[in-house]
Design a protein around this nucleic acid. Structure first.
Lengths: 185, 185
DNA sequence: AGGCAATTTGAGTGATCACTCAATAGCCTA
DNA sequence: TAGGCTATTGAGTGATCACTCAAATTGCCT
């Protein structure tokens, strides 16, 4: 997964996969049917992990808004363990996919929609808990939040762990927490 | 430029370039020295066009903040003339470049920094004109604005010309205009 | 220990990759 | 029209691409 994430679909060769999986080409094609199918499987795993992490994070915190804000902040702190795995793999996939890779692009869009829905549910929960006013529109907030997260992760890709990046993450995080209606912090 | 923009560096083959440029491989390598050099030239052209467009837009409007806000709105309205040319080419380049394409990634980062500076200058101008309070930090606002623009353009790539997209652009635009200190509209 | 099915192997497939260069064509001056 | 110089051509280079398959190996049940 890390390999595909780093290099993308086209730039990852079978030889790369052989080394990473420690499998010969025949075994790879016996297990998966094509490079594309393997990529789709990888993408699914990535999506599920991200979705589950988001859910778990939202459930662990008593304040959904605080959880979302901290989630943003977490991207600014990560150090350089994995070089090019900072941007979201779904976004990378969407941008890298050409017209021929229609199946891949479509699937990436599908997962992104699912992520939007996850975020929307968290804002919905915040509303139920009274953290957000009745007038709040969870769908719209979710879209905005996801946009922020996308941009932040790309920025992380651009120049990781700089003070400016931390400031940007903090700006975004406070924007989320600033919507809270009661019990400050 | 459009070709490289759509398909990216790796996915664009020499054959594609031959067709697009109406040149045989020998001529291409006589004019430019390598595929990479050609890509870098393309990237430079893209950057200059974007930079100039931004400058012109800022100079044409009496209100820098209004200009920036309208610029965001403009991305939500574009129809499907060019399929995959919605996301910023600099961002696509940055995300697509692998470790081997270091020169390309470095150049993309350089241009992105230059764009940040352009935006910062516009916020600075807004501050000079009194549209922004003395306490405003143009550099920070520029980074935030660029992040918004990046995310918005990627969102355009995800699903173009939907009401949700227009709403997102409007949210971002109003956030910019909402910072104005005087002469409403 | 022996036999059988399932799996792994890795050399090999044609296609395509970025790229080269000797041959050709085009053009200007005389 | 002849000579000379530059620009273009396109078949060809070795490398690498995703992918295949007959043969060898493995693991499992008796």
């Amino acid at each position: 997964m890390t390999l595909f994430w780093r290099k993308g679909f086209h730039a990852t060769s079978l030889k790369d996969l052989e080394n990473a999986l420690n499998m010969k080409p025949g075994s790879i094609y016996a297990a998966f049917n094509s490079k594309e199918a393997l990529y789709l499987a990888t993408l699914e795993r990535y999506f599920e992990r991200n979705r589950d992490a988001l859910r778990q994070m939202a459930e662990a915190s008593p304040s959904p808004l605080k959880a979302l804000a901290d989630h943003l902040r977490s991207f600014a702190g990560e150090d350089g363990a994995k070089p090019a795995c900072r941007a979201c793999m779904l976004i990378k996939t969407l941008l890298t996919a050409t017209e021929e890779d229609d199946a891949i692009a479509t699937q990436a869009r599908h997962y992104l929609d699912a992520m939007t829905e996850e975020i929307r549910a968290i804002f919905e929960k915040a509303k139920t808990l009274g953290e957000l006013p009745e007038s709040a529109d969870p769908a719209r907030l979710a879209q905005r939040y996801q946009a922020d997260m996308t941009a932040l992760r790309i920025e992380t890709h651009r120049a990781p762990a700089t003070p400016a990046l931390k400031a940007l993450a903090e700006d975004m995080a406070q924007e989320v927490e600033g919507m809270r209606t009661w019990h400050a912090a």
